[in-house]
Each structure stands twice: as structure tokens, then as C-alpha cells.
């Protein structure tokens, strides 16, 4: 193997107390144009799986409980 695992701080944060993915909600996952969000099968909450964000905000605006917040990726700030 010649592959590294390099961690990175992601711009999309999900408030697990507000996220209702366990009730069948996949809104943020559905609307992301880059398909970078996913539901964690263990916690049953949404999370950002790939650091490929266009900070376009549908995940945040469309979230029915206001659980998602997007910050500008660090490299741009």
C-alpha cells in the first residue's frame, strides 16, 4: 500500500441533537450537488464524508430542523 490517510477539517457541521436522519430524513444528503454528505450507519446522523464543498448551502437551507451549518472552507477564509 502506498496510500496515506490525511485528515482535514470539513466545512459542513451537523448538530446531532437536531438531526433527525433516524426518522428517515435524507434532505441534506439528497440536495448536495457534489454528493459529499452521508448518513452514518452507527450514529444514524448526517455527516460530511468528503471534503469537496462548494459552500452553496442547500444542505443548510433545506434542512428541516436547522441542524446543518456550513462555514467557508479554511483554504478560502
Amino acid at each position: 500500500m502506498t496510500l496515506a490517510a490525511t485528515p482535514t477539517q470539513v466545512p459542513v457541521q451537523v448538530d446531532n441533537d437536531k438531526c433527525i436522519a433516524e426518522k428517515g430524513c435524507t434532505v441534506c444528503v439528497d440536495v448536495c450537488p457534489l454528493d459529499v454528505l452521508a448518513i452514518d450507519m452507527l450514529t444514524r446522523k448526517a455527516f460530511m464524508k468528503f471534503d469537496e464543498c462548494w459552500y452553496c448551502l442547500p444542505c443548510e437551507t433545506d434542512c428541516p430542523t436547522g441542524a446543518v451549518s456550513v462555514s467557508i472552507p479554511y483554504l478560502l477564509r
Binding site: 433527525i20 426518522k23 428517515g24 430524513c25 434532505v27 439528497d30 428541516p64
Partner: peptide, 15 residues
């Protein structure tokens, strides 16, 4: 019976 589930279903319906 769960209002939150009903609400989510309504949100999903148009899509």
C-alpha cells in the same frame, strides 16, 4: 403517528 415523520414525508413528496 409521529408528526415529524409526517412532515418529512410531505417535504419529500414533490421529489
Amino acid at each position: 403517528p409521529d408528526a415529524e415523520v409526517r412532515r418529512l414525508a410531505v417535504i419529500d413528496l414533490p421529489y
